[in-house]
């Protein structure tokens, strides 16, 4: 019965009130915002005014995916389902361009205002996303502040001398990030050379263990140990050839939560890599 009544409500909303609930670019900022994507969740949490953000996705409180997991508890939780978002009656829904496609289509048909954000693949994207989120939420000033601060920190990091050391990104299931990814940008900002670029790899693709061993990078960056339960995906990290490559030293662990989503905290990944390169330099000299 519950489902039926919700369907009836949805249909009647579709039939009777399509025009009324589609505001043109709102003169007044939205005051009940629902975000359905872990990246927009975090940008909204950074920018929204008091009481403006109503709900974030369940991933926002997952410490392995979200940097702001601690703060996510203050908001209602959604799972990106049309029904649950509908019942929250938001005046703005924010989503990613790749996930919850059917939900977005349905919510639009029901007359909700939905704003979509593509995943960030560069610092320029992050800048743009922060500014756009600020505009949507009517928080331009705060957005401007965040961007200025991020740019200052980034400039400071880039101004440091680059070590030119080679680095291999080696994630679960042998995945690596090549040209055109946010991770690749952080590697460059850290003054390092990504071996995936040397091998001509584009985007996220698999780097066979053999090639990793052959390239002999100075640093290996992993994101191991993010999940308590074991999986074969992380077996690469215990392979004798991998262990011989890192020479008993632990690989540099850059938690993927810093690079899954582009935000000011992505600079943390740059810092970790830069520090690791410096530590290694100190040891070899």
């Amino acid at each position: 019965m519950g489902v039926l009544s919700r369907v009836v409500a949805a249909v009647s909303a579709l039939v009777f009130a399509p025009a009324a609930s589609v505001p043109a670019i709102a003169a007044e900022p939205p005051h009940r915002v629902v975000s359905m994507n872990v990246c927009t969740d975090q940008l909204a949490m950074l920018l929204a005014g008091e009481g403006q953000l109503y709900s974030v996705s369940y991933l926002a409180s997952d410490p392995s995916a979200s940097v702001l997991a601690g703060e996510a508890g203050r908001y209602a939780v959604n799972h990106g389902l049309a029904e649950e978002v509908f019942l929250m009656s938001p005046d703005l829904v924010i989503a990613g361009t790749y996930t919850t496609r059917t939900t977005v289509a349905l919510l639009r048909r029901l007359g909700f205002r939905v704003e979509e954000f593509a995943p960030a693949s560069s610092f320029a994207d992050i800048r743009e996303h922060i500014m756009r989120m600020g505009e949507i939420l009517g928080r331009q000033e705060k957005a401007f502040e965040l961007v200025a601060q991020m740019d200052a920190e980034l400039a400071e990091l880039r101004a440091q001398p680059s070590s030119g050391k080679t680095v291999a990104l080696y994630y679960a299931n042998n995945y690596t990030s090549g040209a055109g990814t946010l991770v690749d940008e952080t590697v460059k900002a850290a003054g390092l050379v990504n071996i995936a670029d040397k091998l001509g790899m584009q985007g996220t693709s698999q780097l066979p263990l053999e090639l990793l061993v052959l390239e002999k990078p100075d640093l290996v960056v992993t994101s191991e140990g993010e999940y308590a339960a074991p999986a074969l995906a992380e077996q690469g990290y215990v392979h004798p050839a991998f262990k011989a490559l890192t020479g008993g030293r632990k690989a540099v662990n850059v938690p993927s939560k810093y690079t899954i989503c582009g935000a000011p905290f992505t600079l943390e990944a740059v810092r970790i890599m830069r520090d690791a390169a410096r530590t290694q330099e100190g040891k070899t000299q």
Binding site: A172, N173, N174, P208, L209, Y227, A228, A229, P230, A231, L232, A233, E234, Q235, G236, V238, H239, P240, A241
Partner: peptide, 25 residues
Amino acid sequence: LSPNPFAALEIMFWMLGSLTDRSMT
């Protein structure tokens, strides 16, 4: 049911088999 998101992808390995990156262990 595994809390590790990669586990579900490994159904393929267990049903179809592979020798990729096995070790002396």
